[in-house]
Design a protein around this nucleic acid. Structure first.
Length: 253
DNA sequence: GGCCAGGCCCCAG
DNA sequence: CTGGGGCATGGC
């Protein structure tokens, strides 16, 4: 019996900006592959497709992690029970880097828009009007004016620097967490929060604990004096539950 | 029509 | 190293 997955929470908790819900259909282009399915077909889809099995992280220890975190405190337990089986996707690091460069001082609706505009403008046409996010190689000759005209604003030079320095991503799997963080922060526009997102969503580093405005409020209100080590060794998963719950209902039951 | 958005850069102390 | 202003753009 395979561990089930909470599709709504997993795809729309803000870890990815690629997915759309079109009636009963979940749709996205992931690394040049157009993916589309009904919720009812999900289980069969992932067991027969190694790429998607990995992407949806079907073989990680969610049962153990959830039960461990549920014992930490009541609030976290409530969040987990509300959104149970939220998975941390195994995303392509470049796609995560771009998404979260666009995310700063921005709202989720507009992050998705910018992500899609980049795909339509520079990515490859796939199916059903969907486009893949362009690889860094496809963006080498893009200039700041072009990116600003898409609406990136002050983030345009950040993306330009990321395009130039994208090879930093290759070295990260071998690095200890703190070194991986500082390597990422050499990219302009990548600070502690964005770097943590890249390590969590692009490299499945469970130590990562992205601290944005929502999480600062959660930590201040619910966990004064504590830090991410309180949730070890599953800080990243705890962060997603706390963040998602806080954004959806202000954290209240 | 202001306020604000999954932050970060940059510069002052 | 800590703190706060400024930042492009548009959703609400």
């Amino acid at each position: 019996m395979m561990h089930m997955l909470n599709l709504e929470a997993t795809l729309f908790c803000g870890q990815t900006f690629a997915w759309k819900k079109n009636g009963p259909l979940y749709q996205a282009v992931i690394q040049d592959r157009f993916i589309q399915f009904n919720e009812a077909d999900f289980s069969e889809l992932v067991v027969n497709d190694a790429f998607l099995f990995h992407y949806f992280d079907m073989d990680w220890e969610y049962t153990k992690a959830e039960s461990t975190l549920c014992m930490r405190d009541e609030h976290l337990k409530t969040c987990i029970e509300r959104y149970r089986s939220l998975h941390i996707l195994n995303q392509d690091p470049w796609e995560v880097l771009v998404g979260f460069l666009l995310s700063q001082n921005n709202n989720i609706k507009r992050i998705r828009q910018l992500y899609e505009r980049l795909s339509v403008q520079y990515g490859r046409s796939s199916e059903a009007g969907f486009f893949s996010l362009p690889r860094p190689e496809a963006l080498e000759s893009v200039d700041e004016t072009a990116l600003r005209s898409l609406g990136l604003g002050f983030r345009a030079p950040y993306l330009l620097d990321a395009i130039q320095q994208h090879r930093i991503l290759w070295a990260l799997p071998a690095l200890p967490y703190e070194q991986a963080l500082s390597a990422l922060m050499q990219i302009k526009g990548v600070g502690p929060k964005v770097a943590a997102c890249i390590l969590l969503f692009g490299y499945h580093r469970m130590e990562a604990f992205p601290m944005d405005t929502w999480m600062q409020k959660v930590m201040q209100d619910r966990y004064p004096g504590k830090d991410s080590s309180y949730f070890a060794p599953y800080a990243g998963l705890a962060q997603q539950y706390l963040f998602h719950a806080e954004r959806n209902q202000g954290g209240h039951v």
